[in-house]
Design a protein around this nucleic acid. Sequence first.
DNA 1: GTTCCCATGTAACCCGTTACATGATTTT
DNA 2: AAAATCATGTAACGGGTTACATGGGAAC
Lengths: 195, 195
Amino acid sequence: MANDLLPVTSYAVLGLLADGPMSGHSLSTMADRSIAHFWSIPRSLVYRELARLEELGYLSGADVAQQKLPDKREYRLTDSGRAELSRWLNQPGFERGRFKDGFLVKFFFGRHMEPGSRMRLLEEYRSQAKAYLEDLKAIAAKLEGMPGAEYPRLTALRGIRAAEGQLRWVDDVLQMIDEDPGLLGEPAEGREVVQ
Amino acid sequence: MANDLLPVTSYAVLGLLADGPMSGHSLSTMADRSIAHFWSIPRSLVYRELARLEELGYLSGADVAQQKLPDKREYRLTDSGRAELSRWLNQPGFERGRFKDGFLVKFFFGRHMEPGSRMRLLEEYRSQAKAYLEDLKAIAAKLEGMPGAEYPRLTALRGIRAAEGQLRWVDDVLQMIDEDPGLLGEPAEGREVVQ
DNA sequence: GTTCCCATGTAACCCGTTACATGATTTT
DNA sequence: AAAATCATGTAACGGGTTACATGGGAAC
């Protein structure tokens, strides 16, 4: 929000470390399994974040030797880090959601597309949405009844609702085309599409 | 997608210029009014994109002098640019949608929040979603019946469905809390929230 | 016994964001 | 006449993505 000192990603890292110390690798894995559906954190960014947060005193890292695996560095939240996380969480406001949907960009310019490409695109969009929905349902099911997982489960539910809306939209569009094949200005045979 | 040479933003610029030449400023304004709700393009990025696309031969720019306003440079799509846009549009696949929702990050860690902050956050989220929904409805209404605007209108509808889902989710959560105030593990008075 | 994957990270690049610049026109 | 807005852009910074590195298990 207004006076956040750090990007959301940093606070997400602090939040994930609130439940116990982790290495960069396991943190990244954890992020992929928990918050990735609304805030992805690429693996290599994690390391930079951890280094910075340690620099700021919000984390303390310790090298851990392993015999069968490469040595790793384990980070744990300091008191200062816990306080900063709490401050951020309880401060009002949040970073406005940002969407980027490549499908919609193409679809927006659908007027310039060939009808075959258009339908293929819609089908692909639907199938991705379906897969995404199943993904989230699996997550929600796994969290169901898990004590302390109420919030994660609700965020998954949020994603489920979004995916359902997406699917409904695709079906609406397909049905509209069905009812009125001329709706989207299907060009006559042989007409040049991008003028 | 897989073998896109350019980022989606570049193709969006090409697409917007398919309807006629524009300056960077007017292009940016146009983008804000059309595709911004699913693919925002910051104003200063536009200029870099235009320069690059001209360099690649997809656009040709011409300086235009104005008497009451600063001189501007107007860009129009070249044949090569039109072909590249068409190639991209008709090529299967699209860039997977990316979400970033700062609210959900906070909410995910809601276990560590004070109850008051939590409710305030939810309310703020709802009010933003409502405003967003109204925005999109206004856009869709404006496009209703406009010839050639079928695709833009459908993308707006997509946004409307998404916003409705978001609102429904907030209401669901609020009702769940209402029915079972202990659901989210409301801490007892005075209990420390971030352990 | 190669080939693939896992666990752990580092380095370079580039898109996108934020801040800066400037002169005319409109508003207060 | 000072302040805000508009129309046009430029410059610098940094978050996020993609590519690279490496050595030990697991799989085929």
